[in-house]
């Protein structure tokens, strides 16, 4: 690791006004990994852990506020999350390993970088790591890369499981920066790569995620997080789906769907969600929804299998959610 200076700001204001070339440290499970690989080379590291922000609080509207520094493990295990937002708990438990979840924070999870192999290898061209050098993944080994939201400049997936559930739950991200506070819907937080793939999200210099708000829960048992990966555990998603349905008298009132592993950001298509409204679950409906979600998908050399896998994952997850039998993250049998 290159040498760097280190501080532990005592206030948000101090942290927001950190010097240029500062990286914020939360759990460090992504930042330190990338610093060891020489992908991240901060001159200064500002450790956020003295800033509090690790609480999980009920909100007046019946929703929940998740502190940015609450660990992924504490968030998933929190009784209010486990009871009211089992979709979120399930997605968190589907990611990484217990030791990593004990350290990884909610704010860090939101801001983690891609797992594209070329991004991790400073000897290879990569527009996200070194703007203007080209994209090694295009036409390269790209079995794990995205098929939706890609650009000529970058086809990397955003790897988080937690954020896929947050997108299905329509969470809101709360930020504080040198210019003040603002709140951004999670679906607008991550960016498409376009011509500027080095910008993963809308975070401005000095801005810090302080918390994530969940709207009041409404899916009851009708949810699931279904994640397909190369081994049964401790691997990133090849395709995943987070689904929540509000069902009354056998009719879907509304549905929320987000996909992981296939897009350059958590993938949501409001028009696909709208197809569900006012209809009973059926094979033809779920096939249409999957087709609409994947409209415009463009595989590259090695990842066409995602085009065949994704509709099956979506349809199966829709059946799991309709039946109120969410995917178990312990017994990996897919029912």
């Amino acid at each position: 690791m290159r040498r760097f200076s280190y501080s532990r700001p005592a206030t948000l204001d101090e942290a927001c006004h950190s010097a240029e070339h500062t990286r914020f440290l939360a759990g460090g499970t992504n930042l330190i990994d990338l610093m060891k690989s020489d992908v991240e080379r901060p001159a200064h590291v500002a450790d956020l852990k003295a800033l509090g922000m690790h609480h999980i609080d009920e909100q007046p509207d019946g929703g929940l506020r998740l502190g940015a520094l609450a660990t992924n493990a504490d968030t998933a295990a929190h009784p209010l999350v486990a009871d009211r937002y089992p979709l979120l708990a399930s997605a968190i438990l589907a990611g990484a390993s217990p030791q990593i979840r004990n350290v990884a924070t909610n704010g860090g999870n939101l801001n983690q970088r891609t797992r594209c192999h070329y991004f991790y290898d400073p000897d290879m061209p990569c527009n996200k790591r070194s703007p203007g050098t080209g994209c090694s993944a295009r036409g390269g080994r790209n079995r794990i890369m995205a098929i939706l939201g890609t650009s000529d400049a970058c086809i990397a997936t955003f790897p988080s499981d937690m954020c896929v559930a947050l997108a299905a739950l329509k969470a809101t991200v709360n930020l504080t920066g040198p210019e003040g506070e603002r709140s951004v819907p999670i679906r607008d937080y991550h960016r498409l790569p376009g011509e500027t793939p080095w910008r993963d999200n809308i975070l401005r210099p000095g801005e810090i995620v302080t918390s994530i708000d969940l709207p009041p829960a409404s899916f009851g048992p009708h949810h699931t997080y279904l994640k397909i990966r190369d081994r049964l555990s401790f691997a990133f998603a090849i395709v995943s789906a987070a689904i929540g349905l509000q069902i009354e008298d056998g009719i879907i009132r509304h549905g929320r769907i987000a996909l992981g592993g296939v897009g350059t950001k958590p993938w949501c298509v409001p028009a696909a969600e709208a197809l569900l409204e006012g209809k009973p679950p059926s094979h033809s409906l779920f096939r249409d929804v999957a087709e609409r979600l994947l409209q415009g998908a463009m595989p590259d050399r090695d990842n066409a299998a995602k085009l065949r896998l994704a509709p099956r994952v979506i349809e199966r997850a829709l059946w799991q959610a309709s039946a109120g039998t969410p995917q178990s993250q312990t017994d990996k049998t897919i029912r």
């Binding site: 280190y6 440290l25 759990g27 460090g28 499970t29 330190i32 990994d33 493990a73 217990p98 030791q99 990593i100 004990n102 350290v103």
Partner: peptide, 9 residues
């Protein structure tokens, strides 16, 4: 709590 000490400063 169990952690991976290689990723903790």
């Amino acid at each position: 709590k169990r952690v991976k000490s290689c990723l903790v400063l």
